[in-house]
């Protein structure tokens, strides 16, 4: 079984499906010689402002925040090139009711959508940790989507990227 097929299974599992767009019009100039990995959702990743990125990924720009969605990040970044982010959602991962996808946005990054994590019930917990780039002090936020298409957002989290020094 090829990875491509696995990818297709994921798309089929998603109630909304995913618009798979690949084409040179979505490529940013520097990668003209490269090809996107098939299935990689270029449209939302290429959006330059938060509203467009949300529109292209979750089809709305307004999602109610839920105390179930925990976004943890440092208040002040030690290194803006590698800001650790932990996302944990208090939600069942049952076969018929689970967190399907978590979208991570960084409001004013050149392309605000940073990552999409697609889960299956076998994950047991909608949780992940990764490190992301932030050029300046900014807010980050995540939106969790259930397999039934219900959206819930974390509270936005401000991460300060500062010059440092003067320490105590």
């Amino acid at each position: 079984m090829s990875n491509m097929m696995k990818r297709r299974e994921f798309i089929n599992k998603s109630a909304l499906g995913m618009v798979v767009v690949a084409g040179s019009s979505y490529l940013i100039p520097g990668i003209a010689n490269a090809a996107n990995v098939p299935g990689w959702p270029a449209a939302p990743f290429d959006a330059k402002v938060l509203d467009k990125a949300m529109e292209a990924s979750i089809k709305t720009t307004s999602v109610t925040t839920s105390p179930k969605v925990h976004l943890t990040a440092p208040t002040i970044a030690e290194n803006g090139a590698a800001v650790p982010v932990t996302v944990d959602v208090d939600y069942p991962m049952d076969p018929d009711d689970y967190i399907d996808t978590i979208y991570l946005y960084i409001d004013h990054n050149p392309t605000p959508l940073a990552s999409e994590f697609h889960f299956t019930p076998a994950n047991g917990r909608a949780y992940f940790q990764e490190r992301v780039k932030m050029a300046k002090t900014d807010h980050m936020r995540v939106v969790a989507k259930t397999n039934k298409g219900v959206l819930m957002a974390s509270a936005p989290r401000e991460v300060k990227v500062t010059i440092g020094g003067c320490g105590g």
Partner: peptide, 24 residues
Amino acid sequence: SFPFTPIANPAYFTPKWSFGIHPG
């Protein structure tokens, strides 16, 4: 330990250590 050590002081002294408050 001081949560902001690599921000208040040069991070190159501890390049492989990350700090923070970590209340959780």
